[in-house]
Design a protein around this nucleic acid. Structure first.
Lengths: 276, 276
DNA sequence: CACTACAACTTGTATGGACAAGTCGGTGCT
DNA sequence: AGCACCGACTTGTCCATACAAGTTGTAGTG
């Protein structure tokens, strides 16, 4: 009798056969169209629909959520403006690509970043020593030239695969704490935060360099192969510099994304590419 | 009797005192809401409303164009998705400062970016041709495999110095307009914006590659030297893909910065390094 | 068999009405 | 003067309806 309805609906393998309207709060909570767009976005991020799949038709969504068509269209319009779906006339909306939404904090802490991608981060200390600041480093950290600084070099790994070579210079009041810390297991940022040292702002510069031979050997790539370099100065709440870092990523495995919607804040993220 | 109506209306110094519905084509032409959003965007770009000004109320727009409120709201929703206006409840929509979308624009448009750094941008067309989309390109643009696309390759220069090699693929409805445009002098983005094609969101991926020989020759660097690559997909307010780009920057001259203050939006910018 | 035409579906467009929620200015009270 | 309150106005949300336009599968035609 209504096989025609099932024809389009069968595109979506709806595992749980809910027939009553899905849970929507109609009282003082968020607007209905927002609840619906959030739910759809969540389902897309969870991989319930693959890129290229067709969303359920507006009529089916309407009956599934028990709202009018205008409300459904408003929810879909939100997803369309975000670039998550892509509609044309006469056919249900097409799922565009995995939507990405993660906090920005990741770009600061390798450990937090790797964990957010489902990898287990670790580190291998290559060197830890006290130095005297040269002129550029002194300027970066706001110190006098020749004053002592602590220089730390670590190879950063995710699932035991080397991804990044990290050279960090700390002013004494921060760096002196490193000698009593576990530099290979725990996140430096998290250990410092436990001692009340928090990063309030950071300025990072991204460019590309050819790998020097020593860097190449540590990272396991060919000499002179391209690396993504991130140079960062992190500041505390009082504006004092907490570190000056030079991170070099294997560019065949790591890339950064900038997700930008007009009028909204840009979302900067690191990615680890799939092994080809 | 109705001074209350004039109270809000007086915000807009309506020079030409049209009282009949402004010129809208109701036959096979563009949809009404699109004609209205185009007209409003044009008026805003012409400086008729300054940033911070209040747009006329929906009721006034409704009577001015002789359409229903839903149509007006659809036009305003388009402008909101573009970031041109910014609405809150109980007050007419506010015209957003173009400076808010400035860093966003810089990352998109080489011309706008170079000008913001005090350089004079230009371009040299290396190739312009129609192609058929392969599977990955079709997926990126949301087209069918094998459908025609327009492929443009340009060398981008600042003060006549080559900085970036740009390969862009456009879907037909955007790319077909390129053949009637000045591709070496004017900004493509600005020319397209004048025709109502506006970028609402974009996804960019940054990594590093070694320069292939052809790229190296065009950019004037050694073969296999590191380049900063930015791959971008730009979307319009309706979620349709407007372009898929592959930009390769001379990493000895260009870098990107991410300024991050905790709690505030990260600021992503490009930099041209001083000649050493 | 190839092609056309149609019917059923889909989304896009547009209208009208109704109520809730927020802003703003003025009124009147203390 | 300072303050609470109210009413007019505004946008946000939601509903119901109707038609246009595009897609797709099916049935009928040559």
């Amino acid at each position: 009798m209504d096989k025609s309805v099932l024809r389009r609906g069968s595109v979506v393998p709806c595992g749980s056969g809910h027939h009553r309207p899905l849970s929507l709060v109609r009282a003082g909570s968020a607007p209905l169209h927002r609840q619906i767009s959030d739910a759809l976005r969540l389902a897309m991020e969870a991989g319930r629909w693959q890129p290229g799949d067709l969303l359920p038709s507006e009529a089916e969504l309407r009956s599934r959520y028990g709202v009018s068509r205008g409300t459904i269209r408003q929810a879909l319009a939100t997803l369309r403006a975000e670039g998550a779906i892509h509609g044309s006339r006469g056919r249900p909306a097409v799922v565009r690509a995995p939507s990405l939404s993660q906090p920005f904090n990741e770009l600061l802490s390798f450990s937090a970043w790797a964990r957010s991608l489902g990898r287990s981060p670790s580190a291998r200390v290559v060197g830890l020593e006290e130095r005297r600041a040269d002129s550029t480093m002194a300027a970066a950290l706001g110190l006098d030239e020749g004053s002592p600084v602590i220089h730390l070099v670590r190879l950063r790994l995710a699932d035991k695969e080397p991804l990044m070579l990290e050279r960090t210079t700390f002013p004494p009041q921060v760096g002196s704490r490193l000698f009593h810390m576990d530099l290979e297991g725990h996140s430096i940022y998290e250990s410092l935060a436990a001692q009340g040292i928090v990063v309030a702002s950071a300025r990072q510069r991204i460019d590309a360099i050819g790998a020097p031979t020593t860097d190449a050997r540590l990272l396991g790539v060919a000499s002179r192969s391209p690396l993504l370099r991130v140079r960062r100065i992190a500041f505390g709440p009082d504006g004092g510099a907490l570190e000056s870092a030079d991170d070099r990523y294997r560019s065949d495995r790591v890339s950064f994304t900038v997700d930008n919607s007009a009028g909204r804040a840009p979302l900067v993220r690191g990615l680890i590419q799939a092994v080809s």
